[in-house]
Write a protein that binds this DNA or RNA. Sequence first.
DNA 1: CCTACCACCTGTAAGC
DNA 2: TGCTTACAGGTGGTAG
Length: 289
Amino acid sequence: MPELPEVEVVRVGLQAHVAGRTVREAEVLHPRAIRRHVPGADDFTQRLKGVRVEAARRRGKYLWLELSDKEAVVAHLGMSGQMLVQPEDAPDEKHLRVRLRFDDGGPELRFVDQRTFGGLVLDDLTDIGERVLLPGTIAHIARDPMDPAFDLDTAVKALRSRRTEIKRALLDQTLVSGIGNIYADEALWRAKLHWARPTEKLTVAKCRELLSAASDVMNAALGQGGTSFDALYVNVNGQSGYFDRSLDAYGQEGLPCHRCGSPIRREPFMNRSSFSCPRCQPRPRANSR
DNA sequence: CCTACCACCTGTAAGC
DNA sequence: TGCTTACAGGTGGTAG
């Protein structure tokens, strides 16, 4: 469940079902799921034994379970990762990669990931000031629009400092985090911008409008439990969100634009697709703004 | 230093 | 009914 709203839905579930519990045992069923944990699977499972989960946190699309002793289990869901809370006797999912059992014998935490682009790491937490603890693994990730300390002007500056197409900048998690292919297309539609517009020709005001739109659409999606087209994107209880009903651009090829009625177009973009309205979001002409 | 590209996987749906 | 191809909510390493 890749983008910010879907990951936040998972974080809320982890906070409710896992925070305050102590790990009895960890089990790695597929080594690729912990490939970012350099010391390896044995180190991962040994060190998790007996630790208490203090809280579930998130920045952008990254999640982490804050442990005592300034450590954390950092998780990225990649394209197909799920965090599921399941009874210990429930049958293993086909793509179960990592399991955490707790000393209370209650429901266990399962990391399930079909495509294995996601993974877990056991990492140290670093104090970055303002009583904020951040795993070293994600030091390069910018604040997301739901972060209380998110600053719109800082993010606008970061976007405009890039010499590239606006959607590439929007998707760059070191500039502003949490936005993926769906919400980038939704934000661009709301701001009436074509994805290929060069950043350096966008006004500060337009960039603010774009980032505000991204923030708005992600908040709206969170309110609907996130976007899900199939059972791959679910919360810790296996339930799907229903923001897909509210999408204006993503996946809407051929359907009438909700503003002007023109059929939404699909264009290839970075080995996937971009959806936009040909009338509301005209393609930039060479040397134009 | 900065930007663009592709490999990393598995599964599903569409096309022939 | 196969078989092949396109495509999918992401990111990090690296080539240029």
